[in-house]
């Protein structure tokens, strides 16, 4: 099959090809990587009848603009970015045919933060301004919609390795905590604007292992939730971590959004 792929007319603030797989070389300091919202990735792939882990495009904050250089089926999901094929609005988690020369575009996210695009053929790579498909990949068979994206800001956390460094008041505050997503957010992590917490004793000056979803307490008392592209080690106490099912939900919360969590003791 000819490999014409799609042309990127506008990448938006952050466009990348992602899967659900972690980087295999974390021992050498490579971040975990992978998609920020695995639920949406699995769902868009499912609609196109593909393996849940197939590579998709991830757009953060604002949609990209693509021109089809070949006929394809696509499915968009995750945050609603007002996606259109030419001037026709399309819905999330539905299969649409896009023909050569047609344009896929959208705007800023209306709910959530990250949107995903799956293609019927397997993405090989994003190279320069082209999305290149694997040579031997055939179009998959579309399946009915089975998922609806919803922003979930009621989250669950668990106690982290340094939970006991928190003073009693801070422990109580962490049990049911509310905060807002600060503007300081990226694929590395998100700072929260919320109640300032304190620890009883100094945290030793040595690095510890970190992971996506871990909640670090900074010396200022502010909380930082690490995400998929965070460093593999860090120097701040890990007082808690997000329940794995909620990390994808957290990663979809936009700047300024209020969130609440409750502590569940395992």
């Amino acid at each position: 099959m000819a490999n014409k792929g799609f042309e990127i007319l506008n990448a938006g603030p952050d466009l990348r090809a992602v899967t659900l797989d972690a980087n295999k070389h974390m021992f050498y300091g490579f971040p975990f990587g992978s998609a920020m919202d695995y639920k949406s990735v699995m769902a868009v792939n499912q609609v196109l009848g593909k393996e849940p882990n197939s590579k998709v495009l991830e757009c953060s904050l604002k949609a990209c603009k693509l021109r089809a250089n070949e006929d394809s089926f696509i499915c968009v999901g995750g945050a609603d970015m007002g996606w259109k094929i030419d001037s026709e609005t399309i819905e999330g988690y539905q299969c649409y045919e896009i023909n050569t020369g047609q344009i896929l575009s959208g705007g800023f996210s209306k709910n959530g933060l990250r949107s995903y695009i799956a293609f019927s053929r397997e993405i090989d790579e994003v190279s320069g301004n082209h999305i290149i498909f694997q040579n031997d990949s055939e179009k998959s068979t579309p399946q009915p919609k089975a998922y609806q994206f919803k922003v979930n800001n009621n989250l669950v956390i668990h106690r982290g390795p340094e939970w006991n460094l928190l003073d009693q008041k801070s422990k109580e505050a962490m049990m049911i905590y509310s905060a807002r997503i600060s503007p300081n957010l990226s694929r590395m992590g998100t700072y929260l604007d919320g109640k300032v917490l304190t620890i009883k004793t100094n945290f030793p000056k040595q690095s510890v292992c970190t992971f996506p979803g871990v909640i670090q307490l900074l010396p200022s008392g502010q909380l930082l939730v690490l995400a998929q592209d965070a460093q593999t080690t860090g120097g701040y106490p890990r007082i808690a971590y997000l329940d794995k099912d909620n990390l994808a939900d957290f990663n979809q919360l936009p700047i300024g959004k209020e969130l609440k969590w409750r502590l569940e003791i395992l």
Binding site: M26, F27, C209, F211, T233
Partner: peptide, 26 residues
């Protein structure tokens, strides 16, 4: 030690991360 575990390529392990006094195994 972490490198030894990482290089052993155990089929149960995805990743190994080392810090000064701890090892995280995925």
């Amino acid at each position: 030690i972490a490198e030894h575990i990482n290089n052993s390529q155990l089929k149960q392990i995805h990743n190994v991360v080392a810090a000064e006094n701890e090892i995280l195994i995925y």
